[in-house]
């Protein structure tokens, strides 16, 4: 099983403060998620066109992001606007960082993995963001194990989102296919009043379970899910 082109959560929205950036990956491709001074979030290829440095190593200045190496600055559309070594230069429009469509919904920052994806953006609903959980496990296997109910009574809401009821709270989990052998689960509370810290503790147990479970085949996952239904 693979993941279709579509919308994937990359981070919790409130975890990315205005004027900061974070590096991440989706399907092994390096992305920078950053929030400008006005509060808008952006998802770009994490690569300065100048020398290939990761932009997530750099700094947000106002509504521009600046590369750590030589300070080249890019505006909200990815267009280079300032090259410190050539301060009077009118920067050519060809110096541009590839950008991705992104939205904030359900307390998370989502990116459209490919421009040709036709799926609509994720629905927004009230959610209390709790934490992002990073796993040394292939995303396909994480999805299979969750669907098969081997790590708890999860409900599959889509191929990459899951729900679970936990001690009177409703949780929403969005799977980020980080790379071939790594995944992230972004976790928010959508109902109930279990404390975020208690949910974070539960999430550590979930990570331990998901990393320890033996691999399963898709067919057996479906069988086990059927048996549990």
């Amino acid at each position: 099983m693979g993941f279709a082109a579509g919308w994937y959560a990359l981070a919790l929205g409130d975890g990315l403060e205005p004027g900061t950036s974070a590096g991440t990956q989706l399907f092994d491709k390096e992305l920078v998620v950053w929030r400008d001074a006005s509060g808008a979030s952006h998802v770009w290829e994490d690569r300065c066109p100048h020398r290939g440095m990761r932009l997530s190593f750099g700094f947000v200045r106002g509504n521009h992001i600046a590369c750590l190496y030589h300070g080249w600055q890019y505006d909200e559309a990815g267009q280079c606007r300032h090259i410190p070594a050539h301060p009077s230069l009118e920067v050519p429009e060809t110096i541009k960082v590839p950008t991705y469509a992104s939205v904030e919904a359900a307390g998370m920052i989502w990116v459209q993995s490919a421009p040709e994806a036709t799926e609509p953006p994720p629905a927004d609903f009230a959610a209390v963001p709790v934490r992002s959980l990073y796993l040394d496990r292939a995303p396909e296997m994480v999805a299979l194990l969750l669907e098969a109910g081997l790590a708890g009574s999860f409900e599959s809401l889509s191929s990459s989102t899951f729900g679970i009821a936990l001690d009177g709270a409703d949780l929403f989990l969005a799977l980020q296919p980080y790379g071939a052998e790594r995944s992230a689960l972004h976790i928010a509370r959508t109902g109930g009043d279990l404390s975020p810290k208690d949910i974070a503790v539960w999430a550590e147990d979930l990570r331990a379970t998901l990393e320890a479970l033996p691999a399963i085949a898709p067919a057996s996952a479906a069988r086990q899910a059927g048996a549990l239904a």
């Binding site: 975890g15 403060e17 900061t20 974070a22 590096g23 990956q25 934490r131 992002s132 990073y134 790594r182």
Partner: peptide
Amino acid sequence: SRDFGVDHDEYPALRRWMR
């Protein structure tokens, strides 16, 4: 940690604390 190839991607709380 980037000196030995470990990025900060997986440590969002540490990223905020390092600031």
